[in-house]
Structures are given as C-alpha cells and as structure tokens.
Design a protein around this nucleic acid. Structure first.
Lengths: 155, 155
DNA sequence: CTTCGTGCAAAAGCTTTGCAATGCG
DNA sequence: CGCATTGCAAAGCTTTTGCACGAAG
C-alpha cells in the first residue's frame, strides 16, 4: 500500500451503523454517511454532493438520505441564522447538557447537538468557540410551565 | 372612547424609534414595527402580513422592512430547526449573557436574542421554557482561538 | 425638488413530490 | 421475488431582484 492517506473505502463503520439500526445498506447511504463522518465541519446538501466524487448522487436522494439519517439519529441538523441548513454526523452516544427546572428541580439531559446552532451563531458573530460540557440551563419544565406554555420569556 | 382595548393607532412609539435611528417614517414601517411589538410571539413574514389589516403590504416590502429593521437593531431573527424564519421586536436596551474565555478570562456580553433559537429548539423539543439572565458560556475568544478557528468543538 | 421607498412582475434558490426503473435482502 | 430506494422531471414555497411610480423630507 502506498503512503497516501486514503485507505480503500470499504465503509466498515458505516455498514455497521446502518446494520445497527436495522436498515438497508445502499451505496448512497454508505457514501453520505462516510462523507459526513469525514467532514471537518457541518455540510450543506450541495457541499455534501460535491464531496461525493466516486459516484454522483442525485440531490433528491441526498435530501432523502439526510432525512432518513436524521430520523435514525445518525445526523444532527444545524440551522444558522443566515445561510443554509447544515448537517453533521452524530455519534450515537455523546456529550450532553442539562435543563434544570426552577420550580420542581427536575434535571433533563439533552444531546450536545442542541447547542449546535448557538455555537454557529456565536462563532459567526463573535469569533467565539464554545467549549462546554454539562451546561446548566435554568427554566421551567414541561409540567411546571403548563399555565404559560413556550413563551419567549427571559428571567 | 369605548371600553375596547384598541386605542387609536397614532404610532407614537414607532415614530420615535424610527426617528431615533434617523430613518424615514413610512406607513409600512410604522405598521410593521407596531405589529411586531404587539405580537405575543415571533412572527413569520406572512403571519406578519396577515396581522396588517389596515393596509395590505406587499410581501416584498415586508421582507425589505424586516431586513431594514434588523440592520438597525430593532428586530431579532429566530431560526428554528424546522420551519420558517421568525422575527420579533427587539428592545434597544435589553438583557444579556456572557461569553467567558477559558484561556484569557475575557468576558464578552452578548444580547439575549442570541439565545432565541436555542429557546425555540428547547421549547419545541422538550417543552422547556428557558428562563435565564447572565448565562455564562465558556469557550475560547476570537483572539485565543486563532490557531483553531470556529471548530464545532465541545470540551 | 431630490432621494428613498414601494408595488408589481418575474426570477432565483432550495427542497419536496410523483412515478417508473433499479437494487437490496 | 417482493418491497424499499433511487433517479429524473417537474412542482412548490419562500425570498430576492429590476424597474417605474409615488411618497418623504
């Protein structure tokens, strides 16, 4: 084998991921998963298309596979305030944060991806790179906030 | 005056806001500002259009006025993960939060609206209503993170 | 009176849907 | 072999652009 960085893409990992969720293995899914895992930063649908040299994949399929992977928890979505939707690979078991209810004290864990958009915003606007695990976010849980549901309230 | 809730809309406040930023006062700007201030929750462009009974305003103009107001800091944008862009009135002086640099300890203040999208996400997904002021977010500031700019890193 | 803002029409951009052909298991 | 998945074409929906008219200061 030459000294190049590119090992033969047999997509072992990607195959395993699809098998784990009990879904069909197709060339398109393998390649898209692979490209997302290899990407250094979240990709838009067409950046992803561009990253798929071996076999060009129809945009339609890309969107469908992205939705598919999202539903199965293998990708996370990023929605920056300006610009297009982005997607990144999501490791099944990952970092998390905490929603702490101010009234009943309950502590709900949320996946790290919930902060993705905030990260993007703070990076774009202030050049600030968020580095945090177990961020505590105070507020009212679903049960306690019944009388005033989902206000954009700050306090 | 009858006991109804609707005072005659002379748009005093809206006029003052536009005058403060030294921009022209038009019927469209007044009405859009008024509707946003009156709205209980962030509006999409066409919810806004629907809320403008007196004088129907062209969608084009609505978008242009929203951009205009955004540039002048009078509205904030919300970008939920699913669904359309939303806009809400932004009070010129407002709550804020802190970006704390882990390396140099610098503390940068950011407006509360930076959390809007996170709020929306947590509310939609978990029914959790964020209630926080002076949230401390650790990370690396623009100066300190020069060697690894804007990674989606967590640590 | 001069400049800026608006409405209309049309385009642009991204994403989704319908349907027949192909590939997976 | 049966059913899920793909590609292609076309539609859908939100937002943007060009241009001439009209309003603001």
């Amino acid at each position: 084998m030459p000294l190049h960085q590119t090992p033969p893409p047999d997509y072992e990992v990607e195959r395993a991921l699809l098998r784990q969720i009990g879904q069909r293995i197709t060339a398109q899914r393998l390649q898209i998963l692979h490209a997302l895992r290899a990407a250094e930063r979240p990709l838009t649908a067409d950046e992803l298309a561009a990253a798929l040299h071996p076999l060009p994949i129809d945009p339609t399929t890309i969107y469908r596979v992205l939705h598919f992977l999202y539903e199965h928890g293998l990708v996370a979505q990023l929605t920056p305030e300006q610009g297009r939707q982005r997607y990144k690979y999501r490791d099944p078991d990952d970092l998390h944060h905490h929603l702490v209810c101010l009234r009943c004290g309950s502590d709900m864990q949320i996946p790290d991806e919930s902060l993705d958009t905030l990260r993007e915003t703070l990076c774009a606007r202030y050049g600030f790179t968020v580095k945090v695990n177990h961020l505590m976010i105070p507020g009212l849980c679903a049960t306690c906030r019944t009388q005033s549901p989902c206000q954009q309230t700050t306090a």
